[in-house]
Simulated scan of single mutants.
Amino acid sequence: MALAVGAALVASGINAVVPTLSALLVAILLGVLVANTVRLPPAIHPGLAVASKHVLRLGIVLLGLQVSLQAIAGLGVGMVAVVVAVVVGGLVVTEYAGRALGVVPSQRALIGAGFSICGAAAVAAVEGVVEDKAEEDVVTALALVVLFGTLMIPLVPLSAGAFGLDGPTAGAWAGGSIHEVAQVVAAGGIIGGAALQTAVVVKLARVLMLAPVVMWFGWRSRRAGAGPMAGRPPLMPLFVAGFLAAVALRSTGLVPVELLEVLKIAQTLLLAAAMFALGCGVRFATLRGVGGRPFALATVTTVAVAAIALAGVLLVF
């Protein structure tokens, strides 16, 4: 646990010096670097397991405090419909394209959630309710989120300029198509002007979709599961209920702004510690063994999500 927290502090420090580098992204990369260059003693693994599950879920609960229902409602019915279309469309495309490519169901679910909702946090959240998953399914989905989300940071602003999109439209497209919240912030900052605020609010609307999507996968796993009901994933995991409660609390306006800022720092540290622990599970030898099919699926899903988001914002703006 101390190792994970130390890595989170290092990642946050790097983010403070270079704001375009997400603390979560840096933490994952640090974990990958450590896993592939240092032989960690067995005593380290139980603490990393706690960080990758329990600490992660606490971070997701606190993430709900960044989502205001009023801000999302301010997007208008049209943009909210676009967000729903992006998430649902991304999941559907991933499912059918994954079947055609021969990607296993658990990996389809993890890639679809990560690319359609909010990146690594969504992968880890859905991992808790998806059955018959292998360790390489999770680490591959995480690696793909980092790779493709990072590539989207320069591609979306460049493409928005080529398409002649104005600031708010380009920001809405960035928020609707890029995987991680921090990656959206980086792209919105590159676009400049009013794009950043629009991008963040649209992205947070996608984050809110985490709850129903996790519940959907939980229900699907329970329906398909064999054996006693007690051994199946919960329909609504406790951390999802906590996430929704945090969203409701933030939306009341009762939490002081100063406290929200402190909790945002805590949320970043918790998620960064969890991302480091998850990154420690990513080994290059494992990734080489998964083949090219998940990478092909990630490409298809990225293009599909970006296309749905672009079509939607062009209709709304």
Results as ranks from 00 to 15, higher is better:
K53R: 15
R57F: 10
G59R: 05
V61L: 12
L63K: 08
Q66V: 12
Q66W: 07
I72H: 03
L75R: 00
V77C: 09
G78K: 02
V80W: 00
V82S: 02
V86Q: 03
V86G: 09
V88D: 10
V92T: 11
V93M: 06
E95L: 13
Y96Q: 13
G98M: 03
A100T: 11
L101D: 00
V103M: 10
P105R: 04
P105H: 04
S106M: 08
A109D: 08
G112K: 04
G114C: 11
S116F: 00
C118E: 03
A120V: 13
A122F: 05
A122R: 08
V123W: 00
V126G: 09
E127R: 14
G128D: 09
G128Q: 12
V129F: 04
V129H: 02
V130D: 04
E131Q: 14
K133I: 09
K133M: 12
A134K: 14
E136V: 13
D137V: 08
T140E: 10
T140A: 14
L144V: 11
V145N: 04
V145L: 08
V146Q: 11
V146P: 11
F148N: 07
L151T: 01
M152D: 04
L155A: 15
L155R: 09
V156Q: 09
V156W: 04
F163M: 14
G164N: 10
G167P: 10
A170P: 12
A174Q: 00
I178V: 14
